[in-house]
């Protein structure tokens, strides 16, 4: 298991190199002088010169690439032009909020989708399944930012049940009230992100579960005389959950896209809102920095799911 994990980590190296290469190329391919773009609109000539030096823009291409790698390995993601702070500082101040939202939203969405998907496959042919299918397809088709805005309009603006955005009230309450306040702010973004992830896992689990229940080993379990519940959960669901796990790993990046839009809608002070703000300010170093951090996080998370998969599915470990 340890060996498998190490191999997986080793396999991620080319991916990371490729990521760096791609961002490097993107900077080079940008129309105009990249130094001007990276420095921002009202930069001084000295600052532009400094950027040019840092990114090695005066050197031949290979030298530029070397400078680029060196800069990244030293943990330098450049200066954010709108914050006038190093990108790493800006990002590290926001990453916690994003993690909190993503963890809550994905857990709720994946859990709910999987459970209801399994339920729907059991209820195949009934009205309940049909209703779930319609709900699943509809949620699958609603753009998440619009869904978020509708939630804000009806539950926050009209009904005043929950706060419309942000992570805390202003002024921020103290003591036990702070916890409740934080939770109340967390509810709507979490629900939005969960509703966004839900249909993917609902559809996948339902499809996989229906397929698994026609497998021969299910017939074996029935022939043995195990109860339907045991057949379904122990012999069926375990097998159906394997692709769900793969899916979770594969689509983590896509889920984070949903998280970005959710944050933007609810002004949740995480990386997504940061990214949206950076777009508005044309703060290219910050956009690049957020992309790099998120991409590396996704690569690492994919490795984690793969290793987890090997724990669950005995067939993987051999290869």
């Amino acid at each position: 298991m340890l060996r498998y994990s190490l191999i997986r980590v080793g396999q991620a190296v080319p991916t990371l190199v490729f990521l760096v290469l791609m961002t490097f190329l993107v900077v080079r391919l940008a129309p105009g002088d990249p130094a001007y773009a990276l420095a921002g609109d009202n930069a001084s000539p000295q600052y532009i010169e400094q950027i040019r030096h840092q990114y090695g823009l005066g050197q031949p291409l290979l030298g530029q690439l070397g400078a680029y790698f060196r800069r990244l390995f030293s943990g330098d993601l450049g200066m954010s032009y709108s914050f006038q702070e190093p990108v790493t500082t800006v990002i590290s101040g926001r990453i916690g909020a994003s993690l909190q939202l993503v963890a809550c939203g994905l857990l709720l969405g994946i859990g709910g989708g999987t459970l209801l998907g399994a339920y729907a496959s059991r209820a195949a042919g009934t009205v309940r399944e049909a209703v779930l299918n319609v709900v699943g397809l509809t949620l699958y088709s609603i753009p998440i930012f619009w869904l978020g805005l509708l939630l804000v309009y009806f539950l926050a603006i009209q009904a005043h049940w929950l706060p419309a955005g942000g992570q805390y009230s202003f002024p921020r309450p103290t003591g036990a009230a702070a916890v409740g306040d934080g939770l109340r702010h967390l509810v709507l973004p979490t629900v939005a992100l969960a509703l966004y992830t839900f249909p993917v896992y609902y559809r996948l689990t339902r499809a996989r579960m229906s397929a698994v229940m026609t497998e021969e080993y299910i017939r074996t379990a029935r022939a043995i005389g195990f109860g339907e519940r045991r057949v379904f959960f122990r012999h069926g669901l375990r097998n159906a959950l394997l692709p769900v796990l793969t899916m979770a790993g594969l689509t983590l990046g896509q889920s984070l896209g949903g998280a970005l839009l959710t944050e933007a809608v609810f002004s949740w002070p995480g990386l997504g809102t940061l990214m949206a703000g950076a777009i508005g300010q044309r703060d290219l170093p910050l956009i690049m920095g957020v992309f790099e951090v998120v991409a590396v996080a996704v690569v690492l998370a994919t490795i984690a799911t793969d290793v987890l998969y090997a724990v669950v599915d005995p067939r993987v470990r051999l290869t």
Binding site: T15, L252, Q254, G257, R282, F291, T302
Partner: peptide
């Protein structure tokens, strides 16, 4: 390998990066 990399990288973030620069 290329497919794997492109599948892993968050699409929306990649699109934002490319569109913002290009």
């Amino acid at each position: 390998r290329l497919v794997e990399m492109f599948l892993t990288i968050p699409h929306l973030f990649l699109a934002i990066l490319l569109v913002a620069f290009l």
